[in-house]
Amino acid sequence: MTAPQNPITRAIWDGTLPIKLSLDTTEAAALGAKTIIEPYFIEAPRCSYFPLLTSQLRKYFGDMMLNFIGDDAEIWYDVDGTPLKWHYPIGLLYDLHTGYRPDSNSPPPLPWSVTVHFKDFPADKLIRAQAIDATQDFFMSMIKEADFLRNGSTKKVMNLSKNDQTQLWDGLWSKNYDRFWSVNYRLVMNDGQMPRHIPLRIYLPDNCPVLQEPVSPLDDNGNPLTLGDVLHQILPELFPSSLPSENSFAAPVIHGVIPQLDMPIVRASQNLCYPDNFLHIVVLLGI
């Protein structure tokens, strides 16, 4: 069930999103576009990050006679006027910004429409330096943080050989499941030991701050906690009960699906975490 060829992790790894990347019209004129430039369509992996798409994007718009000579770090993305945080995985951003509950009947249109900007980087809202190197550093630091939460130290990551560390990033970059998971498996499974805490983050709509609390995988009596128990603990108002039947108001979305609340939190972490080893849960309200 936790073998490298886990169908769930495989499905999560293979998950993609079709995105329509269109240029900001005012910027296009400023950058010397003579005609209207057609938007660019791309199918991006849900686990990937936007900076990994930038070079591809840039080549396309370059071919479209766009005269842009700035750094990759100048390029940024927004959806309906909201800048996208480049350090979140694409799938998480989609779930968060569309606010689409898979159990509702009004799915947002696909492809996902994203606007590309080559100018006016919103330094007040986004972190600068979103080049690929920065993305890799951020990704590795997230893995270390997850390891620290699990074990109280980053020994497991730090003890990885240099080769293995680069293999993690290279696997993500080249969309190679075997390459990535042969290393990540050891980290996620924590060598079969019960982790101290579950690395997880909860995102709420309407720009609420991200919740990150130390969550123990077991209760005081040593019984494993379920996903529902954890949500109930952290958000007792949104999740008045740990049972799914009573929680129709709010729903946790991970990877575009709503998992069952009676799923043990350890298993959830092992199966549904993003490549940065965190369980990113988007909580959506109402129907």
Binding site: V257, P259, L272
Partner: peptide, 20 residues
């Protein structure tokens, strides 16, 4: 929950990979 998850993921992919 595994089977459930797999089914759900399959459904998600069916929607989201329609444009592949």
């Amino acid at each position: 929950w595994q089977g459930d998850l797999l089914v759900k993921l399959l459904l998600r992919d069916r929607r989201e990979k329609a444009f592949t």
